[in-house]
Design a protein around this nucleic acid. Structure first.
Lengths: 142, 142
DNA sequence: CGGTATCCTGCGCGATACTG
DNA sequence: CAGTATCGCGCAGGATACCG
């Protein structure tokens, strides 16, 4: 079991704590908060949380909303987020099966912070693109 | 040139825009905002921006603050962030050389959003760890 | 529909060595 | 000190096939 998590678990996920076990400092390696931050900010993690801010969705609905995610990665991402207590999974024992994913209260708090970041980035993209042009211009001739 | 960026460029960085080129929707693939979000939320990107919120730092000072980052990855990360207009690089032509890195105004806005997320995660880690235990308990016996 | 099991590949990233 | 150059490994993650 937990097959799709292999990569995740073999990764870091140090069960040991931070130097000071009261503070969870992401800047220290071997701190579990770094792993959680990674789950959240990961390519698919961030987009999945962002998508779930809009409501409750079924597996394939999510796949469509998070453009480009594969079945495997969405599944893996959802498991990690569920394990961290950010996503709630509700399966109805019907045929065909129906599974709904939603944010937990904690997940909602996180997702809102994340969304604020995403909105900021989207809003400032013109500045970013402009900065890139400047940078590239200076570094190609140089 | 741009040697360390190879991976980055070969990646996505689609110069084409989003379907609608006025909105930069991270949920759509091939949208440049997704790349920028990646730079920001990347393992080292997030930590580097977070570290720079505390002030201006030299290369090796940053290396020490962002525990575990290699020279190569820090260099690469800083270049990406500088290119996106989030980090300002100021080199003094002295011997030994001295280079200072600081956030741009835009970088500051982004970093503050990011920091809010990081603080939230660190603050809620006990809940996360508790959720993990519950999850693991339910899924190992099962 | 809602996944899991497997296989395979590219590139993320660390280690090491070298430069100005 | 502040990087770049190069090599190599390992995992992220896509493609495909299969299952309840």
């Amino acid at each position: 079991m937990a097959t799709t998590e292999t990569a995740d678990r073999t990764n870091g996920e140090a069960t040991g704590g931070c130097p000071d076990d009261l503070a969870y400092d992401v800047f220290a390696r071997n701190c579990p908060s770094r792993d959680t931050l990674k789950h959240i900010t990961d390519r698919w993690g961030s987009l999945t949380l962002g998508a779930l801010l809009d409501g409750t969705f079924r597996f394939n609905e999510l796949r469509r909303r998070v453009d480009g995610v594969s079945e495997k990665m969405l599944s893996q991402t959802l498991h990690a987020l569920e394990r961290d207590g950010l996503v709630h999974r509700e399966a109805q024992q019907t045929n065909p099966p129906r599974v709904d994913y939603a944010l937990t209260p904690l997940g909602h708090q996180v997702a809102r912070q994340l969304r604020a970041l995403i909105d900021l980035v989207e809003d400032r993209m013109p500045q970013v693109l402009q900065a890139r042009e400047r940078y590239d211009a200076e570094h190609t001739a140089r």
